[in-house]
Design a protein around this nucleic acid. Structure first.
Length: 492
RNA sequence: CGGGACGUAGCGCAGCCCGGUAGCGCACACGUCUGGGGGGCGUGUGGUCGCUGGUUCAAAUCCAGUCGUCCCGACCA
């Protein structure tokens, strides 16, 4: 019918686009590189956001909001950060339009309304936030400062892809200030753990925690920690980052505090963020050729009920039975929709909710009611079963948990099957070209080698896993000695 | 920024080469038969053919320009 989905095998990126657009998560907008997040996609984001927000608050953070605009002079204060983002900044230069004297009904930028100082639209907020923190921090008693912001940011990317890389995107950015280096590092890894827990337990996407090499480090950070996920096409996706910023921003913005000994010290900083990109990870980790597969814990809709009518007289009977089920499900906090719309047939609805990835579908007709059962279909395995109406809501609650677990286990098995240790250059190249996935290999620790490998294979070092075991080996490219393996992959 | 494709009804497309009444599918509205995997039949609604200019008696179609979008690549925390 009208909603054919390209298969993964035929064209993986077209498949991805089809899921986003036909699954009604988002659409291209009339603004280059920017997407419209549609209600279904936004509901997913809200569920993710709400859960993360709870986790941030449980770890002592509070929310605040800082401006969208960053005066250029503030933006350039931290040199490395500025340099890293300079190439992809949108800049506001004027504050007024006026009627075009030569073209009625059209507007032009008023050349008289040029700003004294250009405003950079934030690609990230370290600059404006640290400039503000300067006024908030005087004493060790003001520390730690644990603030998070939910915001949009703009990065003028050359090439965009729905959710994975858009010119404007939604995210959260935590910015914390600490009295000691140790405490800041502890915060950095704590938030990495929060991200890993969220992504694994709620999104059912297994991740590897690690630290970035200097090449891949956030501009302005001393260390960048990350969680890396593996997509079904064997490419890696950075799902979240947590940065130890050292005293770089404190020094750039002169943020000092008096310690207990009445001596001035620079503050230690972290920042950490995840974005709507996570939705891209969710889609590519779980979905299949029939459509999206939503993990129950963050699914915009957990259960859909489809009635099977046989003539007008059966409607009240089905409606009544469904009403009691809905009541029971809602009492358990399960989101449910009764789709008794008349304009589509049951078969159409089945396909539609599969496309949208609703975890559990209940179908109920007179035949079922006579037998005191319903037909339950789970989206992840597409299994259908006939289940007694008695105790159904509890059964569904358990089923949702099973599905959540099953989706995670499946993704975990796939991820683990696709981490391969290699010990030679030929093997390295062959694995990348034939199987992709993560390749665990020795590296001599130099940026030059990393660059060369990237140049020749497009693979980058995704991370040095945190729980890495130390072992002696030889770099796959140079043969120089190495003390541990790192994870390479081609990445989004 | 390089390569490719595209812009015609809400969506997806044909028509363009060879200029001459604006088409199809889906969706939508109404009616009806239906209903356990993307229904059938009937009747309808809906379009300044991306924009600007040119050629012509006549332009969706030819020419020039322009704007925009997508895909692949380069780039990217």
């Amino acid at each position: 019918m009208s909603k054919e989905i390209t298969t993964r095998e035929a064209d993986y990126s077209q498949w991805y686009n089809d899921l986003v657009i036909k699954g009604e998560l988002a659409d291209h907008s009339s603004v280059r590189g920017c997407m419209v997040i549609k209600p279904y996609g936004y509901a997913l984001w809200e569920n993710m956001r709400d859960q993360l927000d709870k986790m941030f608050k449980a770890t002592g953070h509070v929310n605040a909001y800082f401006p969208l605009f960053v005066p250029k002079s503030l933006f350039e204060a931290e040199e490395k950060n500025a340099e890293g983002f300079a190439k992809e900044c949108a800049v506001v230069t004027h504050y007024r339009l006026k009627n075009d004297p030569n073209n009625k009904g059209k507007l032009i930028v008023d050349p008289e309304a040029k700003l004294e100082e250009e405003l950079v639209i934030r690609p990230t907020s370290e600059a404006i936030i640290w400039n503000t923190y300067k006024g908030w921090i005087q004493s060790y008693r003001d520390l730690p400062l644990l603030i998070n912001q939910w915001a949009n940011v703009v990065r003028w990317e050359m090439r965009t892809r729905l959710f994975l890389r858009t010119a404007e995107f939604l995210w959260q950015e935590g910015h914390t200030a600490h009295a000691t280096k140790e405490e800041a590092i502890e915060e950095t890894t704590k938030m990495l753990d929060v991200y890993a827990d969220f992504v694994e337990q709620y999104m059912a996407v297994p991740v590897i925690k690690g630290v970035k090499t200097p090449n891949e480090r956030f501009a302005g950070a001393e260390d960048t920690y990350c969680i890396e996920a593996l997509m079904q096409d064997g490419k890696a996706l950075q799902a979240g980052t947590s940065h130890f910023l050292g005293q770089n921003f404190a020094k750039a913005f002169d943020v000092q505090f008096l310690n207990k000994e009445n001596k001035k010290e620079f503050v230690w900083a972290t920042s950490w963020g995840v974005s709507t990109r996570l939705i891209g990870a969710l889609i590519m980790a779980h979905s299949d050729d029939q459509g999206l597969i939503m993990p129950p814990r963050i699914a915009p809709l957990q259960v859909v009920i489809v009635p099977i009518y046989k003539g007008e007289e059966s409607k009240p009977i089905i409606d009544e039975k469904v009403a009691s089920l809905i009541k029971d499900l809602k009492a358990l906090g399960i989101s449910v929709k009764y789709d008794n719309s008349e304009n589509t047939r049951p078969g159409w609805k089945f396909a539609e909710y599969e496309l949208k990835g609703v975890p559990v579908r209940v179908a109920m007709g007179l035949r079922d009611i006579e037998n005191n059962v319903v037909e339950l279909a789970r989206r992840d395995t597409k299994e259908k079963s006939s289940v007694s109406f008695d105790g159904l809501a509890d059964y569904i609650q358990q089923l949702l948990e099973d599905i959540q677990q099953q989706i995670f286990n499946k993704a975990l098995a796939f991820r683990n099957e696709n981490i391969r240790e290699v010990n030679s250059w030929d093997e390295f190249v062959e694995i990348l070209d034939t199987k992709a996935g993560f390749v665990s290999a020795h590296w001599d620790g130099t940026s030059e080698t990393e660059d060369k490998i990237k140049e020749q294979t497009k693979a980058t070092i995704r991370c040095i896993p945190l729980d890495n075991k130390q072992e002696n080996g030889k770099c796959i490219l140079t043969g120089n000695p190495s003390t541990q393996r790192v994870l390479f992959a081609r990445a989004y």
